[in-house]
Structure formats: structure tokens, C-alpha cells
Design a protein around this nucleic acid. Sequence first.
DNA 1: TTGAAAGCGCTACCAA
DNA 2: TTGGTAGCGCTTTCAA
Lengths: 340, 340
Amino acid sequence: MAGFTSRDVARLAGVSQSTVSYVMSGRRPISADTRKRVQAAIDQLTYQPNAGARALASQRTQVVGLVVPFGPAGDTTALLPFIETIASCARDNDYDVLLVTADEGTAALTRLAGRSLCDAIVLMNIAAADTRLPVAAASRIPVILIGIPDDPLGLPCVDLDYPEAARLSVAEAAAAGHDRVVVLGWSAEEVARGANYVGRFERAAVEAAAAAGLEHLAVSPVEVSREGARAAVAEALRIGGPRPALLVPASSAVPWVVQALTERGVVPGRDVTVVALCTDAAAMATVPPVTNVSTEPRDVSARAMQTLFRLLERDRETPPGGVELVAPRLTRRETTLTPP
Amino acid sequence: MAGFTSRDVARLAGVSQSTVSYVMSGRRPISADTRKRVQAAIDQLTYQPNAGARALASQRTQVVGLVVPFGPAGDTTALLPFIETIASCARDNDYDVLLVTADEGTAALTRLAGRSLCDAIVLMNIAAADTRLPVAAASRIPVILIGIPDDPLGLPCVDLDYPEAARLSVAEAAAAGHDRVVVLGWSAEEVARGANYVGRFERAAVEAAAAAGLEHLAVSPVEVSREGARAAVAEALRIGGPRPALLVPASSAVPWVVQALTERGVVPGRDVTVVALCTDAAAMATVPPVTNVSTEPRDVSARAMQTLFRLLERDRETPPGGVELVAPRLTRRETTLTPP
DNA sequence: TTGAAAGCGCTACCAA
DNA sequence: TTGGTAGCGCTTTCAA
């Protein structure tokens, strides 16, 4: 089928090979007649330019490298909307996505950049003190972080506004008339990895609770499993007083927490308020649907790609980094306590 | 940091550029001394070969294209283990993975092959009469299917052995002492798309039930949602008699079916048997853990990649297609009816 | 055992 | 408005 080169097209159209190139790139004015003949030849041969040759000559691969946290770590489930959105944004901008697993660590970065496999890199699941950052910052190509480290080293970052998520959660608890909020905290893995958002959420939750005159309590870490959720719920109910509001920031623990409550005969929305931090889809999948602050993986990804392409267009010498925060939204569903 | 070429390495090592190439590829005997000097130069410059140039010269990209069913269709959740395994197998064989979304349809295939973006393609989520197959079969590069169409057109396929999955499920029902099995069937989307495994499972279920002397009933399609599951469960209990065994082949519906049963006070493992077709992870995530026939996404992916690399090594002229089936396993958990 | 050199198929510069 | 041509950085043949 394929196998034709721009020389074949040129020959068939009766023009020079460089003219074919210019017709494709539009980087030079071409007479209507010539363009027509060349286009006809392209169509006839179903010509497609060789990506390797193009990359070699132009120093651009039209590929974005995506480093995803497969392997040991990772909210392996919440990952898909990120990947999907990134792939889709890439295609919209005429880029492809090269998928690399994070277990390669630093080597992935040096390989992607060193071999000119891509024009830019998206790095996910950033730890507070991520060892890949120095390498990323020294990279020849732009790197954008999804997640915020303690020190971004000048790299652009995009993430959910976790402090705002905490504030929204606490505000919902206050509005529902609670006087205590219990944060059913993060997984041990997230804490161990040093995910920065753990602290960002926590501090904001404490502050917001104080400002609203609520007592703030925490159960952490929470093991993400049935038993872990049962234990956490037991503890939360023990320390939370008669009518606690439960904030559940670890999205993968949400279904289990709701289960554990229900098992004990504690009905969310009647006996306690539950506010989860998870995607809207996940919130609607629990029984009953849980009031949630959305994590907006699609928005976060889209913003990251948008910023990345700005960096890529305004080739070089753009103001480097900066932190972009995506606003979460709270949606009240069936687990917010309502006055009878 | 980077930006060095093999010429730089050659100069530093005092050899010709082609010698550097041969040291890297090992395609020519090199004296120990020369190799040592070249390797030292490579290390010193942290030289990495340019992927585009290499692809252009060698006609090999060391990239596998992966077409994933994002977008409208898709068990969007069950996708991750496939992607992860494929990426991991690829790296083990010194390949990278280019991720393409299926919404490009046929264009994705022609682009990947036509532009020489990759050396082979993995196509997921195959419909019974998939319109991409003719294009795939005519492709210049190997294409492997995860899933089995009605006519593979000579393309290699790998998939779970769904007939065997049906047989295992029915055998479990029989062993638990039931005299009726009700299949809570597939989603309307899967049926509409014409997923081949729907029919493969169904036919085997009917046959196995007949052979075991069980009555076979079906509720299909099942809407994958809380309400859909409730309706399906109501219908299943209506037609299923006093002690039905429920087979749930649509993995995404499993948690909802279990929920719906529990809501009605019907306890899986005490009142009915539930056998799900899903990953072991998903089976253990329900309450109670559900007896399941595993879908083995990692095994299926690994087998596909193994076959793909065989095709890629034994360059050209290997016997083309063939269908590989991966055996499912049944794990009895807490939803198999046990005699009191 | 090694070097020189001819491409691979494209982009982009220099002329016309 | 177009053509000729010099690379891009590698692999691989042909000579030595």
C-alpha cells in the first residue's frame, strides 16, 4: 500500500521534491495550479511523510512523552481520564503520545529527551521531593508537571486546588450544621511517597475548620481496603461525637468508607455527612451517591496540555514555570445531612 | 546536556563514526581495546542515538502502536491493566508504546503505518465485523488483535477463552446444586457494537447448561447502572425460581448487581449463587467478595505482545494469523451457595 | 579489525 | 513562484 516518498509525488506531479514539501507545510506561497497537481499526486499515491525523516530534518517529532505512574504506586483507577484527555488534546494539536511507565524513573526522562523521542514531556504523580525533578529541570525539552512538588525548580505545574477543595468540604460540613469534621485521611502509600497535596489539603482543612468554628479531627492513614475502611470508620465514629461530618480525600477509599458506614447501620445523609474528594463519576457510582468535591482530571490534564503547547509554539524563551491551580466544584448529592 | 552525535563520540574515541555504530549495535566484531575507548567516550558524553535518524536509516522505529478504545465505547476501567502490561512488555523488549485513541478509527491505522510511526500495531476492542480489519490486514506492518472478530482476515488474535469461561461458570452453578442458571447479560453497548465474545459466551453457556441438565435463562441486555442492575435483578429473581444461580458476564455491572441483590435482602452465598466474569481485583472489591471467572487482562496482553515480538523478530514470512485463547480461572469466594 | 562513503526521506536555505 | 541542494544523524555496504 504505502512506501511512496515525496520524490514519487514530485515525479508524478512534475515538480521538484522541495515543492512537495512546501505544499505540505504551507511554508511558502504556491500557485493554485501547482498545489492542485501536487495534491492530486499525493491523493493518488496516498502519500504520507515519513515521521523519522521529518523528525531528523526538522528537529521536531510531533510527539509528547507521557510518564504515567504504573507499577507499584498509583491510584491506578483514577489514571484513565488523565491519559485519555492527554491523548485527545495531543491529537487535537497534531501530536502523538508516547507512553512510558514511571518505573523507569529518571531513565525515562533521559531516554525520551536524549534520543529525541519527543518534543515535550508530561510528568504525572509528582512527589513532594521528586528525584526526577533535577533531571527534568535540566532537560533539553519542556517538561510539565501534573502535581506540585515542594520546589518545582522552575518547571510549570498544574494541579487541583487542594486547599480550595478542603475549604469547600469544610464549608459543606458547616452548612449541614455539624460542629465536628473528621478527615478520613490518605493512604499510607500517598503519605509515604510524600504527595504534596496531602499537606496542602490538611493545612487548609485545619484552617477552614478553625475559621468556621468547627472542631477538626483526623484519622490517618487509611488503608484502602474493606478492613481498612472499617477500622477508619470505627475510629471516626468513636472520636467524632454524635453527628460528625466525614471528609474522605482519598478517592479510592470512598466506596469502602460508604460501605463500612452502611454496614454499621449508619446512614450517610441521615446520621452523618460524607464529603468525598473524587471524580463526579466515582461519586455517582456509590450507593447512595456521595456529595463530592470533584478532582477534575480532565480539566487538569487539558490545562497542562494547553500550557505545554504554548511552550512548544512560542518556541523557547517563554517565561518558564508557574503553578496553575484548577478549581474544584462541590456537588451536593445524597450524603449531606439535611434537617428532617 | 545532550546534543552529542555519534560523530562526537567517534572523534573523542579516535575512531570512525561507523565504528561507533558497530560498537552500539554489536553487528560487527570489535577489538576489545577499541570497544573500551568507544564506550568510554559514550559514557563521558552520555551519548544517546537519535531515534529519528536511526529509524530513517534502519527502517525500524522500535515503537509499537497501541490503539485503545477511549471515547464513546469501552469498559473504560478494565482498560488499565491492558495498557500497563503492554507498555511493560514493550519496554522489556526495548520498544516504546505510541498511544492512539480509537476514535480516529481507520485513520489511526493508516497514519501509524503510512508515516512509519511504529513497527507494529496492537488493536483492542475488536467488533465482530470490525471495519478496521480490512485496513489492518492490508497494512505494511504486523497488526495483532486483542479480541476475536468473526473473520480475522488472517490477522493474529488473542483473547480470553469465553466459551471456557461460560463452562466454568455453569459448572460452578451445577456444583452448588442449582437447577437454573440465569445469565445477567451484556450491556446494550457491547451488544450493539457486536462484540464477538457475547455470542461465544452465550452459546457455550447454553450448551453447558444443557449438558449439565440445568435450565438456562437470560436477562439481556443489562444497563450498566444502579437502576439497570435493579431491573435486571428483579427480572432474574422473577424468572429464576427459588434458588437461581446468577451469571454476570458484564464485569462493570457486577458491583451493581451485588448491590441490587443486597438491597432486596437477597444474600449472595446464602440465597443465590453469583458468578461474575471479571478480574480478580474487581471480584475482591465487592461486598461480599464474589466468586469469579477471571478475565486475565495481563495474561491476554502479555500473550499478544509475545506473539507480536515473534512476528517482529522472525522478520517477514512467518505463518501469519491464528487465534490464541487464554484460559480463565474460577475462584470460589463468598457468593457461591454452600449447603448449610 | 577498521574506515570511507552512500544513502534513508525529509526540511529549509540559496538561487533563479 | 519554483528548483537545486546541503544537510539532519544514523545504518550498512564496499574496500582496505
